[in-house]
Write a protein that binds this DNA or RNA. Structure first.
Lengths: 358, 358
DNA sequence: CTGAAAGCGCTAACAG
DNA sequence: CTGTTAGCGCTTTCAG
């Protein structure tokens, strides 16, 4: 059953008439190699299809890797609890490879705290960073610092506007938000017996976080715009905590407009809206929201929420770490973006998603 | 950055006052250990939370693993092409760990060929087997032989009736078929403006393969049974290749009954039905089918197919191999069943699934 | 029954 | 600039 047919460093060393040390040096551009030796080794390399054994490599470099994760406090929002869960899984998964993951969290309501925490991360000088760049401005300066320090980083959850060219993450892991909005619109249309007033509700969101939600709204509107009749009237509401109890604000919206359907682009906004609909006994209003939070599932089960779209925060986090590890340990290429599937959740399939993500 | 805090075999050897050889012997029940030494080692082990380093283990056991995969010819059915694709990915993924995967395929229309191929596999005496047990009887004898030979195996795609206790796979990877049928029913109901005649179409299926499809139908019917009014009349059709061109048979069904909706529990049956609907200009009939085959996507795009449920054959195959490797190399526990999420596919989200699975 | 030692493929420190 | 060598943690052979 043994069939060691693979080419080892030792083999190519022999073929090139040098020592393994030299081969290793050219392999990693460590310098201190004569032009001639380098040429010789590269020649052999090119005609041998040598591929390093990642296992041995990992054993050989007896080095720990530090990956820093920076994301919002999980206690503040169940959504981020799920992300944290994904990080925890990743931590276990990669422990054998000597990668340590340490998480720093910041306050969703306080951009300052992001800045503070990101500085803390920089001071620790980790080997790589995974971050959910909720705050636009603070994130940008953070990225520049990371780049200056030559620390590779990956973004998850929140994509930063592409036109900003000042930063260059290894990868973005998350949904195509525009298309996500379109999926919601499509489902909305399916459930709507006839045209009518619709609303997009932005609930306790953070101004800086604009991009994330605007894209979803844009997709949602874009879909309906394609119906030339324009019988769908879509209103946007921005309900902030500063302006009083969210429940009350939602109720006011419901009274103001005669809504047939509501799209809520955040996970926590979803159940807040569901609560209001239930309270107002307007459960026949179509409600489409995000994510498998416990409360959202309850409202899905009871029919107040009609569809959820799953952003799979757990998987996002896991994938982000995985790419970082691949980059660090195996220097294998990671994609520019990993755009997750847009998962449609109903009362009939949510369990299959919960069970599987455990 | 180095922080070797992990317990090594060497450490526990020292603590137990024996050599690494002895520790290794008790760790793997290799025998030739005095009762006393064993006791001592186990004592230390129990209070140390020692966990072997999988990397070093893999390097140490310089052994190749053979995993045999047995599944239907991919050329016969695009569905199985996707599975094959998953296998190919797995092959690449695990190559560095010295696991070789060899695939044997059988003829979907010929149970004999399954028997022949499975015998071939047995002769090769692989370390583990991954199989799609499309044929009930042939599969059962195969499983028994595998067990006799002490070869662990995992099932994917097709679950064999649980009441048969004569076999014991490591794991099943696939969908909960009953629930899958319910998801289809739920979507069907959503799209149906009013009650009417529905059909479940079993198209070019193999008699032995009953279980797989009956479960889906069962779920589909079960859902509608819950509406006491019983206004939904569900007919079943079994259309076999032996009885003439499928297209013609489907057309006949369409003429016979005034159908409002059709549920097709196979991937290839889906586009056959779509074709017939298009040909008959009955595209308003709701059609719910399975899987992201090229043709299915086209019909989804053009609106003839309303929803697809994705069984994710690619992922099934990959997961199956992954569990086998975990079992073989890391002897980590694998779950009894990995029931995949029931993914709902629409015109708006299918791309996100295609892109992500690449 | 047990310990010592070689080796898996790669890295990195160290003489020359 | 280059070759040698000592590990990384685990397996496995081989004396004793």
């Amino acid at each position: 059953m043994s069939d060691k047919t693979n080419i080892r460093i030792k083999d190519i060393a022999e073929m090139a008439g040098v020592s393994v040390g030299t081969v290793d040096r050219v392999l990693h551009n460590r310098g201190n190699v004569s032009a001639e030796a380098e040429r010789e080794v590269k020649k052999v390399l090119s005609k041998t299809s040598y591929t390093p054994d990642p296992i041995a490599k990992s054993l050989g470099t007896n080095k720990d890797f530090e990956i820093a994760v920076i994301m919002p406090h999980p206690e503040q929002d169940e959504y981020w609890e799920l992300s944290e869960d994904g990080i925890e899984h990743a931590r276990q998964e990669w422990k054998p490879y000597n990668v340590n993951i340490e998480t720093e969290t910041f306050d969703l309501n306080n951009p300052q705290s992001f800045a503070r925490v990101s500085q803390k991360i920089l001071d620790k000088n980790p080997d790589a960073v995974l971050t959910a760049p909720v705050y636009f401005d603070a994130s940008l300066t953070f990225f520049q610092q990371l780049q200056k320090a030559d620390i590779p980083f990956i973004l998850f959850n929140t994509q930063i506007e592409k036109r900003v060219k000042k930063y260059d993450p290894l990868c973005f892991v998350g949904q195509n938000l525009y298309q996500s909005g379109r999926v919601a619109a499509d489902l909305m249309k399916l459930l709507l017996a006839e045209p009518g007033n619709l609303a997009v509700m932005h609930i306790h969101e953070y101004i800086d976080n604009a991009m994330h939600l605007k894209e979803k709204e844009h997709g949602f509107r874009g879909y309906f715009d394609e119906f030339s009749e324009r019988e769908y009237n879509i209103e946007s509401f921005l309900l902030l905590d500063e302006e009083g109890p969210i429940e009350v604000q939602i109720s006011q919206c419901l009274e103001q407009s005669n809504l047939k359907g509501i799209f809520v682009p955040t996970s926590s906004g979803t159940f807040a809206t569901a609560q209001a609909l239930k309270y107002k006994q307007q459960e026949e209003v179509i409600l489409i929201g995000y994510d498998l939070l416990e409360q959202n599932i309850q409202f899905l089960e009871s029919g107040v929420v009609n569809f959820l779209i799953n952003q799979n925060p757990r998987y996002q986090a896991q994938q982000g770490v995985k790419y970082l590890v691949n980059h660090l340990l195996l220097d294998s290429k990671v994609p520019d973006a990993d755009l997750l599937p847009l998962e449609i959740i109903t009362r009939q399939n949510y369990r299959s998603f919960l069970d599987n993500n455990k």
